[in-house]
Write a protein that binds this DNA or RNA. Structure first.
Lengths: 98, 98
DNA sequence: ACCATCAGGTTTGTATGACAAACTAGTTTG
DNA sequence: CAAACTAGTTTGTCATACAAACCTGATGGT
């Protein structure tokens, strides 16, 4: 049993998927941002971004706050403490890829 | 358009998948190894390992040599030059995940 | 001689998942 | 009033990961 390979096998699939890795990686660097902005940054389609966010929310990694900018609906995204922790662990695990 | 996110979006999916990442990462550290040994190292099932290897072979990243150890068939795996290059690029791209 | 086991797969089936397109619904701008 | 925008949900398709079953041929044990 190879320790390095075991770490790779155990990589958090929720974060590992590039679409979600973009989201988590971006959110890790900011306080919060809104749906549309993130959609433009990542160049993902609405449906795709939406489903990835739902997945991250279900995992407890992202907090989704539906609010309004005036009367226009706006969705704010934030990395949760659990999300930060999971991302840090993910980055540590990535270090074993050499 | 965010340069970091673009890099993440462009991660080589063939290598990115953990099963194949284990294979490539392991092969990058040795001259060659045989199927069974790799199967035990990675703890993957035969079918799964086989299909990942086929995928890597089709991408030109791994060379598969079917030979014999005495009269027992043995399959030798080796990372191709293209595979080495792709893995190096992948590792460089990974550095943009921070 | 025969049965189990091993090497090294291929084939098949299932279940998940990524992603886009279409549809909702309310808001605002020309 | 029509078009475009915000922020989704739903639906459908296609790819893929993975395991189980099947296969051939060789070897070991009894």
């Amino acid at each position: 049993m190879n320790e390095q390979l075991r770490t790779i096998a155990g990589l958090d699939r929720v974060i590992h998927e590039p679409g979600r890795l973009m989201i988590v990686s971006y959110l890790a660097g900011v306080e919060e941002c809104d749906f549309l902005f993130l959609m433009r940054q990542t160049e993902m389609s609405k449906g795709n971004l939406s489903s990835h966010l739902s997945r991250l929310e279900k995992a407890g990694y992202v907090e989704i706050e539906k609010t309004y900018r005036g009367k226009v609906p706006m969705t704010l995204l934030r990395l949760s403490p659990a999300g930060e922790a999971a991302f840090k662990k993910y980055l540590r695990d990535l270090d074993s890829v050499r």
